[in-house]
């Protein structure tokens, strides 16, 4: 890797010609092929695509959990490594069942190299922040419950709070609102937008909800099925803050339609007639 000549913001992300492979029982599977992405610091980027197109793999690459087979990936000018500057929320809430909601949310502060010393010295302000954030997503009063006492949607909200608790400069979200009901999801979109406009982390949102991508992102990449390749790069120039009313405008619909078109051609073929025949 060549050293960058100019100082790079620590939350700038650069993927150039990245190919990723998974080793499975049936040999290697190419998850992503020849993907190049560039995030400006503080940019909100969404990757949309059908299931199994390697969207989540890109997220693992940026977080340093995987390394590319071919090509280079850099975060802040260097190879991605887990530094604790990243906030991450997977689709599966993956809360720890033996911890209360509050303890789950505080987990990043216990392990992130950037925060654990301060947290250990004086946890009180962090706990206060966690409680406020939980209350802000409607989980006030549930701090001392265990995850299994919460509904799926509540778990997912706690999961999002856990990703945000240490004020990360990079936020990686893998379909974080998938299990929420449509209305709660819309409210969380706006909450995420407000948060992003305040702290301006670089955000990578992986989703298959095109409205979600169009509402939140500055730039949207469409990926093809495996091996995932970028088939469209679409900048969204709608003014901020974007509102739910804005999603009903022709401009917004046009963006969603364009995205849909690029996914439409490559989706899983489902033979409705055959399905009906077999089912009846």
């Amino acid at each position: 890797m060549t050293a960058p000549s100019t100082p790079v913001a620590k939350n700038a992300i650069e993927l150039s010609d990245v190919t990723l492979r998974y080793a499975t029982k049936n040999g290697q599977i190419e998850a992503v092929r020849g993907v190049s992405l560039s995030f400006a610091p503080g940019e909100f980027v969404a990757i949309v695509g059908p299931s199994g197109c390697g969207k989540s793999t890109i997220l693992k690459l940026v977080s340093g959990l995987m390394t590319p087979a071919v090509g280079t990936a850099t975060v802040g000018g260097v190879a991605p490594r887990p530094t604790g500057q990243v906030g991450i929320a997977f689709q599966n809430p993956s809360l720890l069942l033996w911890r209360t909601v509050l303890q789950n949310v505080l987990l990043p502060l216990e392990v992130s190299p950037a925060h654990k010393a301060a947290y250990r010295k004086d946890p009180a302000p962090f706990v206060a922040r966690a409680r406020r954030m939980l209350a802000a997503v409607g989980l006030g009063g549930f701090e001392d419950k265990h995850p299994w006492e919460l509904s799926g949607g509540m778990q997912q909200r706690a999961n999002v709070v856990r990703a945000l608790i240490h004020q990360p400069s990079i936020l990686l979200l893998d379909e974080p609102f998938g299990a929420l009901d449509a209305f709660t999801r819309e409210e969380l979109w706006l909450a995420l937008q407000a948060l992003w406009m305040g702290a301006r982390p670089t955000v990578l949102l992986v989703t298959h909800d095109l409205r979600e991508a169009a509402l939140l992102a500055d730039t949207i990449y469409v990926m093809s099925p495996r091996p995932g390749q970028i088939t469209l790069r679409r900048e969204v120039e709608l003014p901020r803050p974007r509102t739910l009313e804005g999603t009903f405008t022709p401009e917004f619909s046009e963006i969603v339609r364009e995205l849909r078109e690029h996914i439409g051609g490559v989706r899983t073929r489902i033979r409705a007639e055959e399905l009906m025949e077999v089912a009846s």
Partner: peptide, 27 residues
């Protein structure tokens, strides 16, 4: 032990020992 909680901790910069004591062991 499910990979997701471990991945979350690793991405946050947790050491292998921290992943072990905070996820694998209690689990």
């Amino acid at each position: 032990v499910e990979p997701e909680p471990r991945d979350v901790l690793r991405a946050l910069g947790a050491t292998p020992w921290e992943v072990f004591t905070k996820v694998s062991l209690p689990r």
